[in-house]
Design a protein around this nucleic acid. Structure first.
Length: 427
DNA sequence: ATAGGGTTAG
């Protein structure tokens, strides 16, 4: 991007960002509606327009956090850091700035953009802004520091800040500190901190244990991991579902029976396996060429009180394609569309190529239409190129013979309405 | 209302 364009965008944004943060008068849509609109919007400037048209932006802290972070992520992707600054700093004009959770969301957003210096700056400004401090904003600051990959700085802040401002670190503060040690490849150092937590009466949680457990597995130290697991159990800190999932992750390379056994063990212990647990089982079946069993896990998700997520769809569709089950793959794809969790480009490329290979022209066509509606502009461009390479672009215009050759050929290629209906028709 | 656990194959 040339600097003049950047400058123009920055100027444009100064106004747009201010409007977005301050004006509630142009309010037309609700935050929940904005959420789905934002999801489909890849242009940061248009995302800002949506943000500024939301009436109840700050009513639900969780939704407003989502919208704010979303915009920051989009801007960060375009390296528009001064725009991020304008956008986030303008939030200081809101009367809500005296509320710690509101200010914390700005700190978190700076963390998302890897702008840690800005995060630290606003944290220190809290006194001037009239915002009270507790461990909450400190923990968000530590997280921002960790997500900016400044791991040794986390330890430094942990020692300095609570003393300076006169509060005590809590279990979450320790959680972030422990994670930083683990990220540095020092899970032993993380374990060391447990003593200190005990002395200070800070609860040692399953989350902290799980962080360390994961780290030891990652280093290939299974024996150490097992020791951590046993200590967690003997202290009565766990395990919980998350801890089990780390254990499952470590054995999923082996036979499905092991994964199944762990899931049963969880259930017997009164824990409810979640989507991640079942994803591991499903993936394990896929890797062992047991596609019927993998599909069964997917189909039973609902019965087990879980919803498929983006990873479920991506993994299942990928392995279905790998096994040549493109028709089933297409069916699962349509289910992913209906819940707004469509897989990535590579997976869908694999699927559309398979459909074409099997002369499922109508499915390939329908899929293509949906993909172009859902993907960001750069990927749409790549997809159109793919369509051309596959000869898919011509099907609608001239090659009815091809369409009629497919088993669902009753739908005319020009009957767009029908194709669209079939795209969105899966509930 | 802030900390942990995942997602193909190259």
């Amino acid at each position: 991007m040339s600097s003049s364009i950047a400058l123009r965008q920055a100027r444009h944004l100064t106004t747009a960002a201010a409007a977005a943060a301050e004006s509630a008068s142009a309010a037309t849509i609700s935050i929940s509606k904005a959420k789905s609109k934002l999801k489909a919007e890849h242009d940061p400037d248009k995302a800002l327009e949506i943000y500024s048209s939301v009436s109840d932006r700050y009513i639900s802290p969780l939704s407003s956090r989502y919208a704010q972070e979303y915009i920051v992520k989009r801007l960060a992707k375009s390296h528009r850091f001064s725009d991020i600054e304008n956008f986030l700093e303008s939030h200081k004009n809101s009367p809500k700035i005296t509320q710690e959770p509101f200010l914390s969301s700005i700190i978190r957003s700076y963390g998302v953009a890897r702008m840690f210096d800005h995060a630290l700056k606003i944290y220190h400004q809290m006194d001037d802004l009239g915002t009270p401090r507790s461990a909450i904003s400190f923990n968000v600051l530590l997280s921002a520091c960790m997500h900016s990959k400044l791991y040794d700085r986390v330890a430094q802040l942990f020692d300095e800040i609570p003393v300076k401002y006169g509060f005590l670190p809590d279990k979450v503060s320790y959680g972030v500190l422990i994670r930083s040690y683990c990220e540095m490849g020092l899970p032993e150092m993380a374990m060391e901190r447990f003593k200190e937590m005990e002395e200070k009466g800070v609860e040692i949680t399953a989350v902290a244990f799980t962080t360390i457990l994961h780290s030891f597995y990652k280093k290939g130290k299974s024996d150490e991991a097992e020791r951590v697991w046993n200590e967690m159990v003997s202290r009565g800190c766990g395990p919980d579902v998350g801890a089990y999932n780390v254990k499952i992750m470590n054995i999923q390379g082996s036979k499905p029976e092991g994964v199944k056994a762990l899931i049963e063990e969880m259930s017997n212990a009164g824990l409810k396996p979640d989507t991640i647990s079942y994803n591991y089982l499903m993936t394990c079946y896929c890797k062992n060429q047991l596609m019927d069993e993998a599909q069964k896990v997917y189909e039973d998700l609902k019965t087990n009180g879980c919803n498929p997520n983006a990873a479920t769809f991506r993994t299942l569709i990928f392995y279905l394609c790998k096994k040549g089950r493109f028709e089933t793959g297409y069916k699962v794809f349509r289910e992913s569309v209906s819940v707004h969790k469509i897989p990535d480009f590579i997976t869908l490329k694999y699927l559309v190529e398979g459909l074409v290979k099997k002369s499922r022209w109508r499915d390939a066509k329908g899929m293509s239409r949906t993909v172009k509606k859902k993907f960001p502009p750069n990927l749409v461009k790549a997809w159109i190129k793919l369509e051309e390479d596959l000869g898919l672009a011509k099907v609608e215009a001239s090659d009815n013979a091809k369409v009629e050759a497919s088993d669902n050929a009753k739908v005319e290629a020009s009957d767009n309405a029908k194709v669209e209906a079939s795209d969105n028709g899966v509930q």
